[in-house]
Amino acid sequence: MTDERILTVGVEDLSSSTVLLCPAGEIDRDSQTVLHEAATAAFGRGADRLIIDLTEVTFCDSGGLSLFVRLDREAAARGGSLRLAAARPAVRAILDVVNFDRLMSLHETVAEAVQASRAEG
């Protein structure tokens, strides 16, 4: 595995209920555990709204897509939501192929996702 394939995740609590996760690198079936752990920790702090900023994500395989589905369900079960934001064209194309816009909220920018999350009330 080369360095560029290691995934790191930045975490920012926007409020007691909303957490912004900023993964950087490639989300695949191995590296997704890093993002999973960060999300689980956020849920553990009482958050139920996750925003994943995909700006620095260069690739996402089916293992990563699977994680998005699980996090979406987990957030929904807690009365919240999962929002994916700012995907690059290559990553957006992957999300479009699997039609995930029908399953979860996809936003062009992080600001838009934050605003939509706040509007949830």
Binding site: S66, R70, R73, V98
Partner: peptide, 13 residues
Amino acid sequence: ALAEQFPDARFVT
């Protein structure tokens, strides 16, 4: 069949 067998959201394109 998939939803019943795989509660971990395993999907098939």
